[in-house]
Write a protein that binds this DNA or RNA. Structure first.
Lengths: 194, 194
DNA sequence: GACTCTTTGTACCGATCGGTACAAAATATG
DNA sequence: CATATTTTGTACCGATCGGTACAAAGAGTC
């Protein structure tokens, strides 16, 4: 048996991640986890014997893995930088549910709790570095690429904050499209009827 | 007597605000407030009879008032838009302690708790609106001004997230300077020896 | 079915939570 | 100084917290 009660550990981690996103680390309680996962307390502690911290660690690792595979690696390896860049914007839009899902790494970054600081820092540095590489392969100077990658990554984070603050997910989509326009990437096949 | 135990309500609110910034709403506990304010529980409940929610409401109102006076109004009323825009960047840098202090409105915006949603939304809309007005008075078209104001406000929020994620406050300063450069505003008298 | 392994439920623990009530202490006023 | 007002401290409440221990229930294997 997989050790996750007939369901994938991934599915469980995704439910747990959502509780962390909604309530932050301190507000994410065991009772909220049980409600979100359908697992009782006994089960949760069986799968995560080190408790809440282990859950968060595994969630963050899972997020990092996803971004490595879907965002950072294409930025680093695609011969045509446009392919990697386009994949980044599409993947980012998908991952953040067009602005409806917040970035857990970003949320935790704002906390005074430094338990996850290294993981968070590495995630963002990795994002910027891989993006900067793609921009350089496009022909930009290193300093321009570094500056622009910082602007884009911070712009994405800020767009998520603003989208949630205003209660309008479209803010996020607009900011993504603006960046794509600047990078001369193909616009979304935007469905105006949504 | 002022009703705040020989100290200004403003000073108390500022200490309380810092607890909210560090720990979020759920993690901000009464014991953390007493430690931060030097007031005991009896005092806290005397000054804030409606409890924690009242504290947060008053803190947010206080923040809004500061931004109204120092950021939004100059953007709206200065005849030379450059004066209001420059004041915005300077004031923003000061308020967020050059990137070391996070934006509480932005943090609360990310929570699923909607208790403060209206206040938060109004704050950001007000910021964008006043900024857009200044940009229009500068000669930009309305649509350009609206788009750019959204970009700047979200960029500021994102720069705070990224500065904290990376543990480097300079990220924030760099993003501010980049926006100022785009708006052709005078650069900071940047002290390189810091 | 017997046995083993995995999952789940639950009682319990000490700690903390936000809030209430109210008395003691401190301060202000005439 | 007497009195009124304000501030502070603290006992108490029911609730929740993360975690521990362990037995019961369920699933897998032969």
């Amino acid at each position: 048996m997989t050790g996750s009660g007939g369901r994938s550990r991934t599915a469980i981690l995704q439910n747990i991640a959502e509780v962390f996103r909604q309530y932050g680390y301190e507000g994410a309680s065991l009772s909220r986890f049980t409600a979100a996962t359908g697992l009782g307390k006994g089960s949760l502690y069986n799968f995560f014997p080190e408790g809440k911290k282990q859950m968060a660690d595994e969630v963050l690792e899972h997020i990092q893995r996803w971004f490595d595979a879907e965002i950072f690696s294409p930025l680093e390896t695609e011969e045509d930088p446009k392919v990697g860049l386009t994949a980044m914007f599409e993947g980012t839009k998908e991952y953040f549910r067009s602005g409806q899902r917040i970035c857990l790494m970003g949320l935790l970054a704002l906390s005074v709790d430094t338990s996850f600081a290294m993981q968070i820092r590495n995630y963002f540095l990795r994002w910027q570095e891989s993006l900067s590489q793609a921009l350089q392969r496009q022909g930009r100077s290193k300093s321009d690429a570094v500056d622009l990658s910082e602007e884009i990554v911070s712009g994405i984070q800020g767009a998520l904050v603003l989208a949630h603050a205003r209660g309008e997910a479209d803010v996020f989509k607009r900011r993504l499209e603006a960046f794509k326009l600047r990078l001369d990437l193909p616009a979304d096949h935007y469905d105006e009827r949504q």
